[in-house]
Design a protein around this nucleic acid. Sequence first.
DNA 1: ACTATTGTACTAAGCACTTAATACAATAGT
DNA 2: ACTATTGTATTAAGTGCTTAGTACAATAGT
Lengths: 119, 119
Amino acid sequence: MDWIFRKDRPIYAQLIEHLQRGVLTGAYPPGSAVPSVRALALEAEVNPNTMQKALAELEAQGLLRTHRTAGRSVTEDEEMIGGLKENLASAQVEAFFDGMKAIGISEDEAVKWIREVRN
Amino acid sequence: MDWIFRKDRPIYAQLIEHLQRGVLTGAYPPGSAVPSVRALALEAEVNPNTMQKALAELEAQGLLRTHRTAGRSVTEDEEMIGGLKENLASAQVEAFFDGMKAIGISEDEAVKWIREVRN
DNA sequence: ACTATTGTACTAAGCACTTAATACAATAGT
DNA sequence: ACTATTGTATTAAGTGCTTAGTACAATAGT
């Protein structure tokens, strides 16, 4: 993986998405080990605490598990992964419709926009 | 209108959306006058500068025009309003697809999600 | 038992942004 | 010409968040 960050958004948030995507797409398979905080921090050229914050968040979401001194691993609960994925997707959809409403576009029209952009 | 703000987001941003929606939906018709900075600030119970910032942004977008000491008015250029609306809508759509990709969902699947939520 | 490696907690510095206070500039309207 | 009202500029205070530095705690592995 290549760790590239934009300046306009917090690093830890981008770390979360980066790792999240890794898990949700299967790049980090269920049950597989995750490098240590310091190792990841070194790799991403980021302060260990920043990486720690990202990992803690992923853990709170249930994607990762910690084994104290034996490092972290991806959860083996594939249903959880799938479930979280659905939650996040659902949130995305709602945010989209809300955003469209904020500029005076109804749901019906919003759906048309989706289609238009795809074509 | 009722001015209600959440704490988790900057007030000026919410002001922008509020007013933006007013214009884009036609509540503030093209060419119509807009209350003064201070009047709006008083109405929304907000510091004048905060309102000023929001109005300045809307002006930068082209939605509003300023007449120096004769207050502001909504632009008469309806094409501009429509154009801006399209730009914002387009941005919303892109943000949606990007967000979905970030959690490992392709465009095809994203479209399915749109349909599912609607049903 | 030791030790290196793991995750974690605490603190502080830096930073950017939001909001507010205040003063200024210009002019419509009388 | 005057004056109240308009938008604007400048400055500062507050605030929260991000990041970093440092020290601590626990244990797997030898």
